[in-house]
């Protein structure tokens, strides 16, 4: 009886969003009379940072500071349609819709500015600080504040735009069965090191080293935040979480946080996160969906590490001490 060490590796290829039915999301953008911009969505920010990212995307597209953008989310009664915040699709789908809406709003904004400055709209550019300048003659400029006032009270224009992102549904080809389930994939690779006590079946994850390829990190700190949390969740899925250990008999199922286990602050593995940025072709400013993907590779990596440590393949999650001991017993019997 001993503590045995093992190391496992796993790599994943993870689609952003889903294709069944086309996966649409819409967005609306409009300016207030003082030149702030409002993004209306029915996508949800549940802590992953949707509001911040959509504000950044809208600000970048229109050419204003991020704090000039307000994002309203999550009301499906009043907001433009969104399929939902799941499948790592929020940034990619809603972000693309916001870009399209913001471009349309920007065009109206430049047209109003052009009338005020008596130039051609195509000769104008934004400085990212809230001003519109004549290209090559920056002394000739107007603030977006004044443009919005003019649009609202003088020119009778609505500085607004509509955005829609829809990947048409892909059906399998009759002959080959080939189809295109997604247009954008994130990738990850994890190496996990574990210790397995072959007497108790207990697994301790010592280290998890993750590399994530997530397209452009639109907000690097928030991406890191997702990845750190996701890596922890992956270990939690691999070793702890289940409501129904004896499915379908729920008699011994977890009913509360005393029984539904997750690693606590004292159970953390040494975690390393490396981000590779390879901008995606169809993502907003090159983004992909890091959300769900980041909690996946740890699971097969831990399973492989357990195999490396004690020679048993556990193919049912979570990898509980009981499952390991049963497998060890079966192995010894053979």
């Amino acid at each position: 009886m001993a503590i045995r060490r093992g190391r496992g590796v796993a790599a994943i290829n993870y689609p952003t969003g889903m294709n069944l039915g086309g996966d649409p999301t819409q967005a609306l953008v409009h300016s207030t009379p003082t030149g702030n911009f409002m993004v209306t969505l029915s996508s949800v920010d549940l802590g992953q940072g949707m509001k911040q990212i959509m504000a950044q995307i809208c600000a970048e597209t229109i050419g204003v500071p991020t704090d000039r953008v307000v994002v309203d989310t999550a009301d499906t009664d009043t907001g433009p349609h969104c399929m939902g915040t799941f499948a790592s699709r929020g940034t990619h789908r809603a972000g693309n819709a916001v870009i399209q809406a913001a471009k349309e709003a920007r065009q109206v904004m430049l047209e109003v500015a052009a009338e005020e400055l008596e130039v051609n709209a195509s000769d104008l550019e934004t400085d990212g600080q809230g001003n519109i300048l004549v290209k090559g003659a920056p002394q000739k400029s107007i603030s977006i504040f004044d443009v919005a006032l003019s649009a609202h009270f003088k020119r009778g224009r609505s500085i607004s735009g509509r955005g829609m992102f829809l990947i048409p549904r892909s059906y399998p080809e009759k002959e080959t069965g080939a189809m295109k389930p997604s247009t954008c994939y994130a990738h990850a690779c994890t190496v996990a090191e574990v210790e397995v006590d072959d007497e108790t079946g207990e697994v301790t994850v010592l280290t998890v080293k993750n590399v994530f390829e997530i397209g452009r990190a639109l907000n690097p700190k928030m991406v890191e935040q997702q990845l750190v949390g996701g890596s922890w969740m992956g270990i939690s899925h691999a070793l702890y979480e289940t409501t129904e250990p004896y499915y379908p008999n729920r008699d011994h199922g977890g009913t509360d946080f005393n029984q539904y286990l997750m690693p606590g602050p004292g159970d953390l593995a040494e975690t390393e996160i490396i981000v590779l940025e390879r901008p995606s072709a169809d993502g907003p400013y090159g983004a992909k969906g890091p959300g769900e993907m980041c909690a996946n590779p740890q699971i097969p990596a831990v399973a492989n590490a357990v195999f490396d440590a004690v020679g048993v393949r556990i193919d049912t999650l979570p990898i509980t001490p009981e499952r390991i001991l049963r497998a060890l017993k079966a192995q010894a019997a053979n």
């Binding site: 750190v228 949390g229 997750m262 602050p265």
Partner: peptide, 20 residues
């Protein structure tokens, strides 16, 4: 000591390290 002090609190999102 920080880990001990936080051990009665559950977080579903962060993986605890940022809180520590």
């Amino acid at each position: 000591e920080v880990v001990e002090a936080l051990s009665g609190n559950i977080c579903r999102c962060t993986g605890y390290e940022p809180i520590i």
